[in-house]
Amino acid sequence: MQKMAPLDVVYKEDLEKLLSLASFGQLLPNMQFDWVDSFKADYSDSMIDLLSRLRDSKQFVGNDNLRIQISNCILRFDSLDEESVRVKCRALVDLKRMGMAYTAFDQFTKEYKLILNEDFKYSFEQFISEV
């Protein structure tokens, strides 16, 4: 993560390693000890920050499959990350995968309702057109 943090040059091998690690989600999810919680939180925060900067990097704007993969990794850490869901849905629409885009949005709105106990305020069309 430190090697990639500047984002000046992102090497394919480094990106693949990062996404492989990030695809597992939170560090030590079954370990519940106070002494490790701050380390786990720091790892998650750093990973989300780096992945978010990669997702939004101009370097990957035209690579819909990679942006979906990065968004999926972020969502492993934070299932309510609206920008990752938006990027994922837009990329799926651009790839002509409308059913998958609607399914991703539907899963997000259900989880949003479950966790926050309120309905998501945007329709699919409004959500993906947000700037």
Rank of each mutant, 00 (worst) to 15 (best):
L75R: 00
C73P: 04
S23Q: 07
M4Y: 08
L54A: 00
S20D: 14
S71M: 02
F60K: 08
S20L: 15
F33S: 12
L114K: 13
L95W: 07
K17S: 13
N72E: 12
F33M: 14
D64H: 13
N117L: 15
G62H: 04
S129Q: 13
N63E: 14
Q26H: 12
M47N: 03
D78M: 01
D49Y: 11
S38E: 14
F105P: 01
D42L: 09
K96D: 13
K40W: 08
M31H: 06
E130L: 15
V85R: 03
V10N: 11
Y11E: 15
A41S: 07
K17M: 11
A22E: 15
Q59I: 11
N72L: 03
I48N: 00
E130A: 13
R90Y: 04
V61F: 12
F108V: 01
K96H: 08
M1G: 10
D78K: 00
E130R: 15
D42T: 12
P6M: 09
D8V: 06
T109I: 14
E82N: 03
D37F: 07
A41E: 13
V85M: 03
Q69Y: 00
R86S: 03
D94T: 13
F124V: 00
I128M: 04
Q126L: 11
M31D: 09
F127H: 00
D78T: 01
K40R: 14
L19I: 03
K40L: 09
A101R: 01
Y122C: 02
L28S: 07
E83G: 02
I128S: 09
Y112K: 04
